[in-house]
Amino acid sequence: MDRQASDVTIPPLGLGGVFARPDPGANVVVFAHGQRQRAVQPPQPLRLEALRRAGLGTLLFDLLLPEEAEDRRKVFDIPLLAHRLAQATEWLHSAHGAGGAVPVGYFGASTGAGAALLAAAEHPAAVRAVVSRGGRPDLAGVEALGRVRAPTLLIVGSLDPEVLALNREAAAQLGAEAEVRVVQGASHLFEEAGTLEAVVVHARDWFVPRIGRERGQP
């Protein structure tokens, strides 16, 4: 773990996470994944470090407890996951987190994208931008998508046609600025050479002007 990151526990359930702020003025991207993924597992460090270099803080935490992770009902319980994202955002705004109502962005993947958009719809003042990577925004539901006010970027691989179709349909239903970007040669998990790097660039360039501080970027 780098010197900027620290292990944290998010109440009330005691969800574990890793939180890093490059400096006290940094706003924060919260990672929302459909299964347990921690910053110590590749390829997460690539994404985290790219955002930190751009002046953004990062929070990666487990949406599910260890005993819940194998329960498919919990993995696809979008309201539950969205509620826990909201709890993590509340923690960020507390004295134990970032301390104050810092602008927050959500970076969702898989079912976590649906949860991120549902949470954004429920808490429009707290969430300034959303990025989805190979996600299922449709799982948020049509009604919630129409209430989203956060600018949303949907990144999908060209080799993932079913998810691409779902994302294009969801983009048309969103109540905010929305864009679909296709990474050529990428499958659902973006395991092909260079595809994850492309996702990182798209996500960084979406977040920085929307939740980054007003300053030149490196």
Rank of each mutant, 00 (worst) to 15 (best):
A119V: 05
L196Y: 12
T58I: 08
L15N: 14
R149G: 13
D7H: 10
G141K: 00
H83F: 09
A113F: 00
R181K: 11
G185P: 05
F207I: 10
R84K: 03
G141P: 01
V40T: 15
Q44L: 14
E49C: 10
G134D: 03
V28P: 05
A193L: 11
D205V: 12
P66H: 12
F107W: 13
D71A: 07
R47G: 15
V131H: 01
A115L: 05
V199K: 00
I78K: 02
G105C: 07
R72E: 14
G135D: 00
E68Q: 12
V29Q: 00
E192A: 01
E169H: 13
L189C: 08
L15G: 03
E67S: 13
R73T: 12
A115P: 09
R36I: 15
L65R: 10
L59P: 02
G216D: 15
P103E: 06
A125N: 08
K74Y: 09
R21H: 01
R181D: 06
L164T: 15
P45R: 02
Q41M: 10
P42R: 02
V142A: 14
P161W: 04
V208H: 07
A119Q: 04
L46P: 02
L81F: 10
W206G: 10
S94C: 09
P66F: 11
A140V: 09
A86Y: 07
F107M: 12
V131D: 01
G108F: 00
D23W: 11
E122A: 13
V104C: 01
A26Q: 04
G185R: 00
R53T: 15
A193T: 11
N167C: 14
G105E: 06
D23G: 15
E122F: 06
L59W: 04
R210E: 10
V75A: 05
V156M: 10
Q184M: 09
G114P: 01
Q37G: 11
A119P: 06
W206Y: 12
D71F: 03
L154E: 06
